[in-house]
């Protein structure tokens, strides 16, 4: 029921989710920190931008990403002029797409966690002589750990479920951009329901396990705090 091609697709999906989550944590954590702490009046505009992928159809994201990443696009053109291949139809292009697509799922929980930490622990740390970086790494980050964990798992799980964006910018290349959701689509279209079941059940189990882990962890943290 599960072919070598299916396993390849599943491996790609997991790699894509892992790479996207890593990039999202690196970019999303400072962004969430800034959103949680800034007093600027324009903050809500940035918040709206971060939340956009929640409401935009993946076709809109996919369409603009294809124009951006393709050989004629600004980013693709830049890469071509540097002698590199454009990013459309590559694994790297999918990572960029997934980062945009899953951004709110990572930034929002982390931002909430930073807000919940509040200014007090940081002020205390400052009076004890901790510098800004020190305060961030030794006080804010550990206290916001449940939020970071939730953001990471949600980002990972949401990327597992990505379909529309990949359909538009992936090009369905085996071993490079044919992720599990696309392989399932192919199986269904070809009436290979056995193959579709195999991969679908695997994804179902994986996603459920991940979410159980998130909710379980969050519960334990809450219990510990109480």
């Amino acid at each position: 029921m599960i072919t070598a091609g299916d396993l390849e697709a599943l491996r790609l999906t997991l790699m894509l989710a892992a790479a996207s989550t890593a990039v999202l944590l690196l970019l999303g954590t400072p962004l969430a920190w800034w959103l949680a702490r800034t007093q600027r009046r324009g903050k809500f505009v940035v918040e709206a931008l971060v939340a956009l992928p929640l409401v935009l159809p993946p076709t809109v994201l996919g369409f603009y990403l294809l124009l951006l990443l393709g050989a004629k696009g600004p980013l693709g053109g830049l890469l071509s002029s540097l002698g590199l291949r454009p990013l459309a139809f590559t694994f790297g292009g999918l990572v960029i797409g997934s980062v945009v697509y899953s951004l709110p799922f990572v930034v929002q929980p982390i931002q909430d966690a930073f807000v919940r930490v509040g200014p007090r622990p940081l002020e205390v740390a400052a009076t004890l002589g901790a510098g800004p970086l020190d305060r961030f790494f030794t006080v804010a980050l550990p206290l916001a750990r449940p939020g970071l964990l939730t953001g990471a798992v949600l980002g990972f799980a949401h990327t597992l479920g990505e379909f529309g964006v990949v359909l538009m910018i992936g090009g369905n290349i085996p071993g490079e951009t044919r992720v599990a959701s696309i392989a399932i689509y192919d199986h269904v279209e070809a009436l290979d329901y056995g193959g579709a079941h195999g991969l679908s059940l695997l994804l179902l189990g994986l996603s459920f396990t991940l979410l159980v882990a998130v909710y379980g962890l969050n519960r334990r943290v809450r219990v510990m705090r109480a």
């Binding site: 294809l66 124009l67 393709g70 050989a71 004629k72 693709g76 454009p86 459309a88 139809f89 090009g171």
Partner: peptide
Amino acid sequence: FVASGNAE
């Protein structure tokens, strides 16, 4: 894919 310049 070709018309949009993404495939040669």
